[in-house]
């Protein structure tokens, strides 16, 4: 990829006279929708906005001084995208899992073992649903990868000091995303209602109760009371399946739009 100037960009856009067959189909589709909703006004504004951004390519440090070096930290710049893709994988496999998972602590006996309906539905996913174990594995591994990617991404941003002006607010949004990711992991860990889930929920419950002044209310809000039960699993389910994913998705999209808007902090 050679250095790009505004000339070459202009030349490329001059070539925009005849759209190809796909382009023509898209245009026709757009025109059809436009006749009904008058999207053109917004489209023009959007196009104007789009061309304003990133039109003039800055020259990197390497180009400016004609250095024969490559930015060897580059792979670390893909971590944000990896986190996003892992989130998408987790969302898709998670939707499939909710078809079979039952958020209930009602008693159930599986092969003579005392358990809950939640745990029973996990065994159904693992043994009876076609490829159920694979979907669960995909959900688990994409979650793991997402956490790793987010943490490493955060440290890459820290060490390349990309949080400085003008990117302060995006860093804050990133911290929120980090906390949301932790929250997604924690609430998901509770759902199977296995030994580890149960005792991890106990730790979380005790931590919220230990919060000064707000303790009781926090426990009531997050765990549905100071004792674990059906309310706990319902709240964790709602948090893990609806609230946190929506917040994470919204915040992540906003985060990436801001990156697109501001450009990546120039690697040099």
């Amino acid at each position: 990829m050679g250095p790009e100037t505004s000339d070459t960009m202009d030349a490329r856009r001059d070539g925009f006279t005849e759209p190809g067959p796909v382009g023509r189909m898209l245009l026709a589709l757009f025109a059809w929708v436009d006749e009904r909703f008058r999207l053109r006004n917004y489209a023009d504004e959007f196009r104007h906005f789009y061309y304003q951004i990133n039109l003039e390519l800055p020259r990197t440090h390497t180009e400016k001084y004609n250095l024969r070096v490559i930015w060897y930290w580059y792979p670390l710049y893909t971590l944000g995208s990896i986190a996003f893709l892992a989130f998408i994988f987790a969302a898709i496999s998670g939707i499939l899992l909710t078809f079979y998972y039952v958020p209930s602590t009602a008693e159930a006996t599986v092969n003579g073992v005392q358990a809950t309906e939640a745990w029973e539905s996990m065994t159904v996913i693992m043994t009876e649903v076609p490829l159920g174990f694979g979907i669960r594995a995909l959900h688990f591994w994409s979650g793991m990868v997402m956490v790793w990617a987010v943490v490493l991404h955060m440290f890459r941003v820290y060490f390349t000091q990309a949080y400085k002006k003008p990117r302060e607010l995006n860093w804050l949004l990133g911290v929120v995303l980090f906390l949301l990711t932790m929250g997604l992991g924690y609430t998901g860990y509770i759902l199977p209602w296995s030994q580890l889930s149960y005792w991890a929920a106990i730790i979380g419950l005790e931590m919220s109760i230990a919060t000064p002044i707000l303790g009781q209310y926090l426990a009531g809000l997050l765990f549905g009371g100071v004792e674990l039960g059906q309310q706990t699993i319902t709240r964790m389910y709602v948090l893990h399946v609806i609230l946190l994913p929506l917040l994470t998705f919204g915040a992540a999209v906003l985060h990436v739009v801001i990156v697109w808007w501001q450009g990546i902090a120039e690697p040099h």
């Binding site: 358990a115 174990f133 669960r136 924690y186 580890l196 991890a200 730790i203």
Partner: peptide, 19 residues
């Protein structure tokens, strides 16, 4: 694939509890 732990047993606290 990811393993499935044994079901929750409120009476039997495991020796090691970890998040």
């Amino acid at each position: 694939p990811y393993y499935l732990e044994s079901p929750a047993d409120p009476a039997g606290q495991p020796a090691v509890i970890l998040p």
